[in-house]
Each structure stands twice: as C-alpha cells, then as structure tokens.
Amino acid sequence: MRRLAAALVLACLASIAQAQDTDFEGAWLLNVQIPAEPLVGLLEITRKDDRWFAWVEGGPAPVTINGDSIELFIDSRDRQGYLFQRRLTGNLEDGLMSGIMHSIDVVETAAEFGEDGSSWSAQPFAEQPPQTPITDMSQVGGIWAPLRGLDFRKWTTEMTPAAREWHAGYDARMDEPQKRCISPGLYSAITWSFPFEIVVDDDKLVFLYEAFNLLRRVFTDDRKDPDFYPNSAMGYSTGAIENGELVIETTLLSQTIRDFNGEPISENAKIIERYSLGDDGNRLTVVVTLVDPDNYSRPSIRRRVWTRQPDAVIFPFECDPDAFFRQLYNEGRMQEYIDRTPRRP
C-alpha cells in the first residue's frame, strides 16, 4: 500500500511537471545546431478547433503535438533546388523545446547530406539586442563575404488563391529570370552566396553585389520615394538605424519570383531587411521579410550571414544568355518559350 501511494504521488508530480500542450502556442526562435552551418528560423504554433498548425519562416510546417512531445516537418530545398524534408522531433521542458533533426530524401551530393542527426532547440521568440549595436552607418561599410548557414530555404509558402493559380503554370526551365541573365530581384539576390560591398555616403548606402553586377542605393536621409520612380527588380530603398540595427524598407518592386519554387512577388510588395552586427562588428546578419498581401497570407522570411573581409576581390559578373537560348533551339523549344512571354515575370 505504501508503495502504491508513493507511485501515485510520483505520477501526480510527473503530470504536474509535464508541459501542457497549450504551452506550445506562440512564436519561437528555432535553432538547428549544424556544425559550421547553424540554421535559424521563426517558428509559429497555434491551435484551432483542436488542431495544431505551425509555420516556419512564414511557410506551413505540418506539426503533431502530444503532451510535451512535438514532431515538425519543414520542407526545404538544397542549394541546387532539390526538395527534401527536415523532421524535428523533441520535447518541451521548462519553457524550452529541444530534440533531434533528421533529414529525409537529401540528394547525396548535396552539402545538406551531412546534417542528419543534428540537435535543435527553440526558445520563446523575443527581440534580441544586437551584439554590436549600429550607431553610425559607417559601421556597415566594407566588403562582406558569405558564411554558411542561417537560412532554412523553406520551400512552401502561404500563397493566396490567385498566387497559387499563377504559380501552377510556372515552369522554371523556361521562366526563371536568371537563366536568361535577368535578376530575379532583391529578395532572392540578398541570399545568394556571393560577396558584396557596402559603400557609405552622406545620404545613402550603395550596395554593390557581385551576383549579376547588381547595384542598389539605400537612401538614409529621410526622403520618401518619388512618384516618378519606376518599379524595378531592386526597388526603391530607404534605411535608418533602429535599436542598434540597420532597417531597410524597399518598395516599387517589379513583378518577379520569390525563390527556386517560383512563387510570385507583386509590384505592391514590400521587403524589410534588418541588419545587425556581431563579432565586434565583423559579422553581418540579415533577416529579410517579404510582405506581399497580393500573393501571401503570411510574410515570408529568409536569412543570411557574412563576415567582413576587406581584402576580398569582387569579380565582374558578365552574364550572357546565349547558351540558354542555344539549348532551347537545340531542343526545339524556342516557339514554346516565345508563347510563354506574356506570363513571364
């Protein structure tokens, strides 16, 4: 009898200590500890009509929650665009989630092949003060070389019905702008793995990207976008320092695609970049948020990190679409390409 009582007491204590599944609701900062390539993402969880829903970086992520345990699937793409799944399993304890990540169906030749079995954790989302607060624009000036990691390369997004309809007809082989040497625009270009330089001027920052020789001006003197400014792939940008971060807002974008999956970005979209410094000002991190209600019911997020490298050489990027068109000609698909012109972003 004494043993039974003790067992009951232990069982009660365990049930009190165990997380209630409602504790999972809310916004979390997700970290996957892949050696040399940590991943960071915003995880949002909610419950409706006794069903759980989750999003990672603004895209849907199927989730199962049972007591204090969680299973989460994040569809991602590798660097070449091949789709695979990241399966996170773990538990919630003392307000923190943690567990193991498994990668499913990764192409064996992809760098992502080595990440299976990494540990992950999630803590309640809260704005973190930057390690090295930006107080002057000159702090971000210089040449920045890409480091590995941060971006999940989340594959699916929360598209509107109109966006889904447009996207159903997308053909990356024909329509991807960069194949014919056209930049897909700011949202993609920021996350590409090329070096870039920021030149600091009194009233603006000039970003010089190696990729596609892209150039943008970010005005920092409180001016507003002029009525006559045309829409373009890089848009019209203004920037300011807020709470130790460089925050850039870009509008007047032209229609383009979000990523390799080819989801649309409209002319009404806004892109918000939040740059922060770490490592005594020698590491630059950005969180890029795409707000485009015409196409997405939930903002989409991407991330990138660079290291300061004053001695880096930024090479010219002279793009020639000749080989793309030659292939279409050889495959007898030129007419198909021309027929698709009206719908090409």
Binding site: A172, Q178, T307
Partner: peptide, 19 residues
Amino acid sequence: FLSATGFANHVIAHHSYAA
C-alpha cells in the same frame, strides 16, 4: 581568403537545377 572563410566549400547555385 575564401578558402579560409569556407566560401569555396559551400558553393551555391543561383538557379534551380532540380527543374
């Protein structure tokens, strides 16, 4: 420098090979 930063070892495609 790029080898030292790991850059050369994590080359990335900028369009979809998967398609």
